[in-house]
Design a protein around this nucleic acid. Structure first.
Length: 835
RNA sequence: GCGGGUGUGGCGGAAUGGUAGACGCCGGGGACUUAAAAUCCCCUGAGCUUUGCUCGUGCGGGUUCGAGUCCCGCCACCCGCACCA
């Protein structure tokens, strides 16, 4: 037989068309097969598919194809998370409408995805910027509104005083606006919120059920929700007011030496008639709103002159306005215990406030001096009157009990989780379907007027929200009184779009967001795959949204994602010239051991391997790679070597190796020999073992291990002489590799004379009797170190193994006549001789 | 600052507390070829006094007959932090 080369430039398209024409991957919700919903996080249509997408979708694709082979009806859809800031930026920079830009990107990226041969059900495709989608989203928003899960209050944003616009955190660079360069300020705006805190307990408890989520993600969510118990009580202030505070450390109450309140605390605001107070509050407004910025900023305080009376000692403690106290957490006021809280310690040091020890390692160390930092750890309470000698835990309970008896405070649960602010002062998002009526306040847009569509004729030449500035769009009438009224001009956070898209994939009727009966068929998503960067926000919002839908009676699903997998990034070496400017991989080449610039031969430093990014120019375009090596080689690369949860370093050598392996398999597939006779038991055993092992690896998403198994079976099959067993190994390899290299597998399957598509074929079956080895290798250790190995029949008796071990010449030499004190025998594994 | 993670040859990594380095890449040697490409075969953790021995999984301790794996304490790097998606 003449060997041919596998030509992906012909085969890839041929099989992609074949799948498309046959509707191979169209999910049938009426099928009586068991169902499996495989989902990868849908992409933002930024313009081009990048390697990170390819890796993400290849993993999901292998799972989807594998599940189909195992007899599942698989739903594996794709769509577009299409609202967002980049479209507005493009509008400003390139004078193109955000919608036009977005849909052009979608078209281009869809073509790219199709060229990789993903087993996607494109019949369910949608973009979140389709009025049809966001109209249903508006209806769901109104459902939540009617259920009392939506409210309005003022909240801080990053304000650019020059561009007169709200900035996203991303647009604040070193405390300055990214375009204007002006110092960013905090500014309060009335905004819409979703009551995710109503679900805090639920969301926390639900984590316990998510057995197939990574522990780290559950832990991150748990910490984010941040349930803490403590004491809420009020200090009597010298001005006659009461100051409610919340503390998680009531046990340290005798160590309190000051109180601190947020700059936007009502008491601070009430003192603002004093110009110095007002100036300090103004000072606190400087800077952005991110947690990292707030917590690393220098701790500043302003002594209000008001004092608070300690509930036990009666001592008067100063009340400060402080920039590190957040109005959003607890009561917006804290008692400062410098000895046992690091932030309080730094603050007390700066403002020369007393730092007392109230927790010590032991009672005898009650007078031990404090070091140069706080001691937040466990210990025994000291210098605390009736609490002395108690453990931290007991003292907490004791103080809470005393407060409740005395009626001046109570034990409470406080959550770190804050309500979800969903208002965005931007054009390219879902319009919030509310009308502000002069007589009736905010009124929902009547359902028959949905969707509230975005206007097309908008202007990005002046900064700010184009919806706000649009000449006519916001002018409407009050649905109740019919009088002139204004539309809400804020749009919804794009996280709202991605909080329910999976439901729309499962079911997309025209007249409703989804159909509960269809939801019941597909939900929850069996495998959800995406980046770890979504571990908290997106996943928490989607969990919340699903629970909210369940609570208001939309369906009976609580958790949207049964199993979650977070994949690593695709990285690449970086290349820099002497002046620090970056070069892309195709602008450099190796010159001996060094790198040089292709253009002028200038020396190039190969730097660290980091996430592919435009700024570092270490990006490789999937299309160029596919054009050169074919889709299967790229898919194979994405699955090889690195465990899927870790970063994958892209390399030219690596993709070339994958390209060679595709050809190597192709050659092997052509060696299927109908005239071959006889059995090759060792090879057959390897093939049967591989069927089981590759299945286990894929189900555990251990794609790199599945790949290694296929390499091993390939090597063994190549070396074997023709036999019926070898034919079996070849056809097994075709099937095992088909989820990963579907084009090659289809081509080989057809060439071998099989009817139908391998995509529709079943996973090969294994013979359990063929899995068991007859012989095993036993390691012989002396003093825990390997001295020899012996081959023994599987299941050999302990005594026999011990005797065989002691008979070994190498072992005897190592023993050197020493007395054997003990022999540990692990059947089928090892013998360890202790002297 | 807070929360989470990662660390094993030149590189990516494998290893239910039981033979560390499977498998792949790079590199070296050889075969085939007029030559190259492609392909195939062999070698490839370090060191040494090389039938073999010693060391070796970020660093320092510990538990165990036995530790990459478990425990304690460090270090380095990466990710997230609520308006990036």
């Amino acid at each position: 037989m003449t060997e041919t080369r596998f030509d992906p430039s012909l085969a890839d398209g041929r099989w992609q068309r074949a799948w498309d024409e046959a509707g191979t991957f169209t999910a049938d919700s009426d099928s009586d097969k068991p169902k499996s919903f495989i989902l990868e996080m849908f992409p933002y249509p930024s313009g081009r598919i990048h390697m990170g997408h390819v890796r993400n979708y290849t993993m999901g694709d292998v799972l989807a194809r594998y599940k189909k082979m195992r007899g599942f009806e698989v739903l594996h859809p794709m769509g577009w998370d299409a609202f967002g800031m980049p479209a507005e930026n493009a509008a400003m920079e390139k004078k193109v409408h955000p919608g036009e830009w977005t849909y052009a990107n979608i078209e281009a990226m869809k073509k790219q995805l199709q060229g990789i041969g993903f087993a996607l059900d494109w019949t369910r495709e949608f973009a979140t910027c389709d009025p049809d989608y966001y109209g249903h989203e508006q209806a769901l928003f109104l459902d939540m509104y009617e259920a009392g899960l939506v409210y309005r209050r003022s909240s801080e944003v990053n304000w650019d005083p020059v561009d007169m616009t709200v900035l996203a955190n991303e647009q604040v660079i070193d405390g300055k606006g990214w375009r204007s360069g002006a110092e960013v300020e905090k500014r309060k705006l009335d905004q819409w919120f979703l009551k995710i805190t109503d679900f805090a307990e639920d969301l926390l408890e639900g984590l316990g059920e998510l057995k197939d989520w990574p522990d780290k993600v559950r832990l991150m969510q748990e910490n984010w929700i941040g349930k803490s118990s403590g004491l809420e009580f009020s200090f009597d202030l010298s001005n006659g007011e009461k100051l409610p505070v919340y503390t998680t450390r009531p046990d340290t109450i005798f160590g309190a030496s000051f109180c601190a309140i947020a700059a936007d605390h009502p008491i601070a605001q009430s003192l603002a008639s004093d110009t110095k107070v007002a100036a300090f509050i103004e000072e606190c407004k400087k800077g952005g709103t991110t947690a990292a910025e707030l917590e690393t900023a220098e701790k500043l305080g302003f002594n209000t002159g008001v004092t608070a009376k300690h509930p036990f000692t009666g001592e008067a403690m100063p009340v400060f306005i402080a920039n590190f106290v957040l109005m959003d957490y607890g009561t917006g006021a804290v008692m400062g215990v410098p000895g046992h809280d690091q932030r309080d310690f730094e603050f007390a040091t700066k403002y020369e406030l007393p730092i007392a020890r109230v927790v010590a390692k032991d009672v005898s160390e009650a007078d031990a001096p404090m070091g140069d930092e706080a001691e937040p750890g466990d210990g025994v309470i000291v210098n605390s009157d009736f609490l002395d000698g108690l453990s931290v835990e007991d003292a907490k309970a004791d103080v809470i009990a005393k407060a409740e008896e005395g009626g001046w405070g109570e034990g409470t649960t406080v959550w770190r989780l804050r309500d979800w602010g969903i208002s965005r002062q931007r054009y390219w998002g879902t319009p919030i379907p509310i009308i502000h009526s002069p007589d009736h306040g905010p009124v929902p847009v009547p359902r028959d007027q949905l969707p509230v569509k975005l206007p097309e004729d908008i202007d990005f030449d002046t900064p700010g929200n184009p919806l706000e500035r649009h000449p006519t769009w916001k002018h409407t009438t009050c649905p109740i009184s019919g009088k002139p009224a204004l539309r809400e001009t804020d749009t919804l956070d794009t996280f709202v779009n991605s909080s329910w898209y999976f439901l729309r994939f499962a079911s997309q009727p025209d007249n409703a967001p989804f159909d509960p009966q269809e939801i019941a068929k597909w939900m929850p998503v069996r495998h959800y795959i995406g980046g770890i960067e979504h571990a908290i926000l997106h996943l928490l919002y989607a969990r919340f949204w699903t629970r909210a839908m369940e609570r208001i009676g939309k369906f009976e699903v609580k958790e949207p994602f049964d199993a979650l997998f977070t994949q690593g990034m695709v990285t690449h070496e970086t290349y820099a010239l002497g002046d620090g400017s970056w070069l892309s991989p195709n602008e450099v080449r190796k010159n001996g051991a060094d790198w040089i610039a292709i253009e002028d031969g200038a020396p190039v430093t190969a730097g660290r391997v980091v996430k592919m990014s435009k700024s570092k120019k270490n990006v490789v375009d999937p299309d160029a790679i596919i054009a050169e090596y074919g889709a299967d080689a790229v898919r194979w690369f994405m699955l090889s070597d690195s465990p899927p949860e870790r970063d994958l370093p892209w390399s030219q050598d690596g993709i070339e190796g994958c390209g060679r392996f595709v050809q190597r398999l192709w050659r092997l597939f052509q060696q299927f020999d109908l005239s071959a006779i006889g059995e090759d038991k060792a090879l057959a055993r390897k093939a049967h073992q591989a069927i089981v092992a590759v299945a286990e690896d894929i189900e555990a998403l251990g794609f790199n291990k599945a790949v290694a198994r296929i390499y091993e079976l390939t090597g063994a099959t190549e070396k074997a002489a023709p036999s019926e067993s070898r034919n079996f190994a070849i056809s097994t390899l075709m099937q095992l590799a088909s989820p990963m290299m579907p084009h090659l597998a289809e081509e080989a399957w057809a060439k071998a004379g099989n009817a139908g598509l391998i995509a529709d074929a079943a996973w090969p079956t294994h013979d359990p009797a063929m899995l068991v080895e007859d012989e095993v290798t036993i390691a012989i250790q002396h003093k825990g170190k390997l001295r020899d190995t012996i081959t023994a029949p599987k299941g050999a008796a302990k005594e026999d193994l011990e005797a065989l071990a002691l008979a070994s010449e190498k072992v005897q030499r190592s023993l050197d006549g020493a007395e054997v004190r003990k022999v540990i025998v692990v059947p089928d594994r090892l013998v360890n001789i202790v002297t």
